[in-house]
Amino acid sequence: MITFSEAQLMAWVSPILWPFLRVLALFSSAPLFSMRVIPMRTKIGLAFFVALCSQPMLGNQPIISLTGPDALGAVAQQVAVGIAIGFAVRLVFSSVELAGEIIGLQMGLNFASFFDPSSNARISAVARFFGNMSMLLFVVINGHLMVLLAVVKSFDSFPVDGNFLQSLSQMHLYELGSSLFSSALWIALPMVALLMFVNLTMGIISRVAPQMNIYAVGFPVTLTVGMLGIAATLPLLEQPVMTLMQRAIDLFANLR
């Protein structure tokens, strides 16, 4: 009769279980992977497939027994690291959407807002457009592969040792939070300068020709110039998104 000891079973299960939990936690918070249209069974199967394929890159991971005192800390550590990676990537998309909110405010289109089920909040049409463009750009530049590589490389910076508090102290997510508003402002700066110039021009025209109804003319002009400006500056969105994405991933893995 073939028998297995608990140590042998954990030697087989532990190298796959902890990466599986970390990748599954990533899929619950990262953009694109956390979409509700993706069935939960598909996420679980894909997380297991990624954990299985990443075994050659992980090397010798520490074996933690499920019945030991470090099991709860190991579970909390994998969930925290996975969610933190997904949250860092989501901050990149939030920066782009915030830039869209600023541009929409300058264009006068913030009244055209609707409920976004992904964020459970109302979002303007311009911000949603920038969010969709950043999502497409995320796929084009293989951002989803970069995120999966980051979660695999994170085992070098955050090994499976069950030390939950130490992992939290090593995460510097506040660095991304501090750059959220500055990055959004830099992305929206060309459009803000263009629309401020248009508003200044409209103000001069209203002083030169007071008989002109500037309120009837200003909105169509601002809207038209804003649409043309978005079309002209949209190709410039690639470099800021790639820079923010690299900065978010470098917090957990040095991929350079």
Results as ranks from 00 to 15, higher is better:
E238D: 03
M245N: 01
A253L: 06
M146F: 04
G226Y: 04
V160G: 00
Q246N: 14
S167C: 05
P190I: 08
A209L: 15
T243I: 07
L194H: 09
M227N: 05
F138R: 09
V151Q: 02
P240L: 10
L234N: 01
V160R: 01
T243C: 00
R128M: 14
T224E: 09
I249G: 02
L251D: 02
L237E: 01
V225M: 10
I230G: 07
Q170I: 02
A188W: 12
L176R: 10
P159S: 01
R128D: 10
W186E: 09
L176S: 12
V198A: 12
F155K: 00
L194S: 08
I141S: 07
G226N: 07
V198Y: 06
L194T: 14
T201K: 06
L223W: 14
A232Q: 07
L251C: 08
S154Y: 00
M245T: 07
P190Y: 09
S206I: 08
I214M: 13
P159A: 02
R247V: 01
F197Q: 07
T201W: 08
L168A: 10
L195N: 09
G203V: 12
P240A: 07
T233P: 00
Q166S: 11
T222I: 15
V151E: 02
I205Q: 04
L137C: 07
M245E: 03
F155V: 01
M171F: 08
S154A: 11
P220V: 12
I214Q: 05
F181L: 14
G177D: 09
F219C: 10
A209I: 15
M171G: 05
I141T: 10
M227D: 04
P220H: 12
L223H: 13
A248I: 02
I214E: 07
G162L: 00
T222G: 11
A248P: 01
I205Y: 05
L195P: 02
P159C: 01
L244K: 10
H144W: 06
A193I: 15
F197M: 11
S154W: 00
Q211V: 08
W186S: 12
V147H: 06
L223R: 13
L223E: 09
T224C: 14
A184F: 10
W186G: 01
I187L: 13
L200I: 13
A253H: 08
Y174P: 04
I205H: 02
V221H: 06
V225P: 11
